[in-house]
Write a protein that binds this DNA or RNA. Structure first.
Lengths: 109, 109
DNA sequence: TTCAAAAGGTTACTATATGTAACTTAGTGT
DNA sequence: ACACTAAGTTACATATAGTAACCTTTTGAA
């Protein structure tokens, strides 16, 4: 029943970016490398789902995971080149959101 | 437990675009006005979910719904100005996908 | 030496979202 | 009256996300 006519590469990108939380995680990492708990509290995601997403994004080579043997051990997540190159995408979304949404309280233009 | 530090306008935009199918529906409508069944078969979405999405996108003034009293009645969906202005976003995603995904078969770079 | 704390998760369980297929409504043509 | 088409809707099944409690390792205090 499915006969999509859409470019498979584009679909892959959309599926990556439409996966809930992925865009926010990437956006957050644009500020620089961050730790699990920093990402978690900054975007308000549950540990379980964040753990899933980070694994998935790492598999897709969008982010990199680095173990720092401090005490207690610290895990640092950062964007790869592939991840960093999503910046223009997020920038466009940001521009669009600033233009089309007005109030801070939930109402829109 | 949630203390997001992210701009609420940006979050709204992300939530709109991350809602499954929304980006593909909008992308599809960039080609011009289309009918329910055309959208459905071109992106391979179920009628139930497409119906939900179209209502939601209409509420958000991203798409417009027009009843054409032919026989049988035809409903035409099109992008509003707000929806059309998402074109640069989708273009950036398209560019990114073309650069970072190589094969047509599911493997990537 | 035993306790508590902190980072980064995982697990079991619940709630929400999505998918499937059959059904509905209204107008036409046969 | 009957079948056909477009655009949905409904009931039910499965998949994805959320919550809170628990696990592991290392350190430092009691």
């Amino acid at each position: 029943m499915k006969q999509p006519t859409i470019c498979p590469k584009f679909e892959k990108a959309i599926s990556l970016l439409s996966q809930r939380w992925n865009a926010l995680v990437i956006y957050q990492l644009l500020d620089g490398p961050q730790r699990f708990s920093e990402i978690q509290s900054s975007i308000g995601i549950s540990g379980k789902v964040l753990s899933d997403r980070l694994k998935d994004l790492e598999h897709q080579e969008v982010i990199a995971r680095k173990v720092i043997p401090e005490t207690p051990v610290v895990i640092e997540y950062s964007l790869t080149e592939k991840g960093l190159s999503l910046k223009p995408v997020l920038k466009e979304i940001e521009d669009w959101s600033q233009f089309w949404f007005n109030s801070e309280n939930g109402a829109d233009a």
